[in-house]
Simulated assay, not measured.
Amino acid sequence: MSKAVNRARRTLNETPADLLVGSIGKIFEEAYGITEAELYQVDYRLSELLPLTEGDSIRDAGHPAWRAFDHQVPLLVDGTAWVPVSMRGERRGVLRLAPVADDPAVLSELADVATALAHELAAVSPGTDVYRVARRSQRLTLAAEMQWDLLPGRSRIRPSFSLAGQLEPAYAVRGDSFDWADDGQRLWLSTINGTGEGVAASLLTSLATHALRNARRAGLGLGDQAALADQAIYDEYRGKRHLSVLLMELDLRSGTMSVVDAGSPRLILLRGGEVTEQPLEAQFPLGMFEATDYHEQTLTLERGDRLFVVSDGVVEATGKNVRYGETALDRFLRRTGPMEPLDAVRSLIGDLRAFVAGDLVDDAVVVCLDWTGPQA
C-alpha cells in the first residue's frame, strides 16, 4: 500500500467530522496533483447524487457518476475520476476527482481511500448532521426522519448473501420499515408493513423494531421474538393498534430459513427465472391480542435463490385508477435476475413511481435477499 493511501487513512481518523473530504483533498493534491475533490452522496430516494458543498445534482442514469455508483468501479472520463464511496456493500455515493492521470495504479489507490472515507462517514454520521443534510433534496417529514434513523443501512454484502432494502415515499414514509443483523452464522431479517399516519405510525414501528431487537439480542428464538414484540405492543396500545411483520432467520451454513408470518408482507421467491409467492402460515399481527403464541415454519433455499419481501403498498400502488397488481410485479421481478439487490430494489421502486406518475401515496417497503450459498 502506498504512503499516500496510508497517510490519507491516518488523516481521516484524525480530522474533525465535518472536514473529511477537504482533508483527503489536500493529500490528493500533494500526492497526485488532484486539485478538485467533491463528494456526491446518493439521496434518500436513490434517484440523485447530491454534492456535499457545491454544484448541481446528478440525475442522468448515463452519467459517469451513476455508472461508477451502479457498477461499483472507478471510472476515468476526460481526466475526471468518479470513484465509488462504499463499504461492506453500503453504497454512500461517489467521489469526483480531477485532474487524474490515466494510470490504473492511481485509480486503485484512489479507490482504497474512497473505501476508507466510506468507513469514516459511517463512524462520524451519528455525531454530525453535515452529511445527512447534504444527501436530501427536500425536507423529510418528522415521521420519515424517525424511520430512516431506525434502519440498519440500505444494503449489505457478505460472502454468503447480499441484501438491500428501500422505503417509499422516501421523504414522507410513515410506518413501513425493515431491520437486519447477522453474526457470521445466521442472518435475521424483519420487514414491517406499518399502519396509521404520521408520527403515530413511526412510533408504533419503532416500538416493534426495538422490541424485536431486544428479544433477538437476548438469544430468543424467532417465535419468542415475535411473542415478546407482540406483548410490548399490546401492553402499550391494549389491542387498539397492531402491525404486520415478517420475521426470517437464515442459517448461513445450510440455507435453512425459519419464518414467522405475523400478518406479514408478501414473500416472493425468484428461482431459475420463475417467480412464486411462498405460502406462509398466516398468524395474528403483533399487538392484536394479549399473549399470542407464534410458530415458526421452515423453508430451504438453494444457491442462487433470490427472495423479495414487499408490503401492500407495492401491489396496491394505483396509477390512472389501475392497480399495479401481482401480474406486473411478477413480470418485473423476473427482469431483476442479473441485477445486484440494491439495483433490483431501486429499479422496482422506479417502476412504481413511473406507474403512478410521481411519488407513491401509501407506504411501500421492498427488501431483496440473494442467497449465494455457504462459504468457508
Score class of each variant (00 low, 15 high):
306 R>S: 03
183 D>R: 04
164 A>P: 10
199 V>D: 01
135 R>Q: 14
100 V>K: 06
46 L>D: 15
122 A>G: 12
41 Q>V: 04
350 G>C: 11
108 S>N: 09
100 V>D: 06
257 M>L: 13
168 E>Q: 14
65 A>R: 07
300 T>E: 00
53 T>I: 02
17 A>Q: 09
293 D>Y: 13
104 P>L: 13
215 A>V: 10
283 Q>S: 05
137 S>N: 11
294 Y>D: 02
340 E>W: 05
130 V>Y: 09
303 R>W: 04
362 D>S: 13
362 D>P: 09
300 T>N: 00
168 E>M: 12
144 A>G: 08
2 S>L: 06
40 Y>M: 07
230 D>W: 02
151 L>Q: 01
106 V>F: 11
90 E>M: 07
370 D>Y: 10
1 M>I: 05
91 R>I: 00
159 P>Y: 10
22 G>H: 11
220 L>H: 06
330 D>T: 10
158 R>G: 04
355 F>V: 15
106 V>I: 14
225 Q>L: 02
334 R>S: 06
29 E>G: 10
62 G>P: 03
74 P>N: 05
319 G>C: 12
162 S>Q: 13
329 L>A: 04
36 E>H: 14
248 M>G: 00
197 E>T: 06
145 E>I: 08
369 L>M: 08
89 G>H: 06
372 T>H: 15
285 P>Y: 03
70 D>R: 13
19 L>T: 15
175 G>P: 09
201 A>C: 09
107 L>F: 09
190 S>Q: 07
286 L>M: 08
46 L>H: 15
322 V>T: 09
63 H>L: 11
96 R>S: 10
254 S>Y: 08
369 L>W: 10
197 E>W: 08
14 E>I: 08
147 Q>M: 14
16 P>E: 07
7 R>F: 04
184 G>L: 03
26 K>Y: 12
67 R>C: 09
202 S>F: 12
78 D>T: 14
22 G>I: 10
347 S>N: 09
111 A>V: 02
46 L>A: 13
25 G>S: 11
129 D>R: 15
351 D>S: 13
109 E>A: 12
14 E>K: 10
291 A>L: 08
347 S>V: 14
215 A>S: 12
330 D>P: 05
158 R>T: 05
178 F>A: 00
165 G>W: 02
340 E>D: 12
16 P>S: 13
20 L>G: 12
269 L>I: 09
109 E>L: 08
344 A>D: 01
242 H>Y: 13
284 F>R: 04
343 D>Q: 15
197 E>I: 00
289 F>Y: 11
10 R>V: 01
138 Q>K: 15
39 L>C: 03
13 N>T: 00
375 Q>Y: 11
100 V>N: 04
317 A>M: 06
105 A>E: 12
84 P>L: 01
202 S>D: 06
92 R>H: 08
281 E>L: 14
362 D>N: 13
164 A>H: 08
62 G>R: 08
74 P>G: 06
